[in-house]
């Protein structure tokens, strides 16, 4: 969920709030255990240019997406499953180029 910290709709209550704040804080957070899921930072439903499987899924040689089947970003801004790209770079014909734009592959850091 995208959060926009400075647009909190406190509205009418805010004047009251500031008054009350003069006294001690009635409610204080001691411990906050949040839970979050992570996704690859790629547009929704985008697919790997090599295996055509969604980035949210894994490459054909893996079974489970996630940490074990990471993505790799090139300086040319193209993204692939790391396994797919490494396999491609391992072939003779790749000439170490990005399969999308034929520029030499440089992994973005």
């Amino acid at each position: 969920m995208a959060q926009t910290p400075n647009q909190r709709p406190f509205g009418s209550a805010s004047s009251l709030v500031s008054l009350c704040n003069i006294f001690i804080m009635k409610v204080k957070i001691k411990d906050w255990k949040a839970v979050a899921g992570w996704r690859w930072d790629v547009p929704d439903d985008d697919v790997c240019g090599i295996c055509r499987a969604p980035f949210d899924a894994c490459c054909p040689s893996c079974k489970i997406p996630g940490d074990d089947c990471p993505l790799i970003w090139g300086e040319c801004t193209h993204v692939f499953h790391m396994h797919c790209l490494l396999k491609w770079l391992g072939t003779e014909s790749s000439q170490q180029q990005c399969p999308m734009d034929r520029r030499p592959w440089v992994t973005a850091s």
Binding site: V27, I29, K30, K33, V35, A36, V42
Partner: peptide
Amino acid sequence: GRNLQWQPMLGTCLL
């Protein structure tokens, strides 16, 4: 290269 999506319904807190 990862995005976090918070799941408020799963979290707990101590006030």
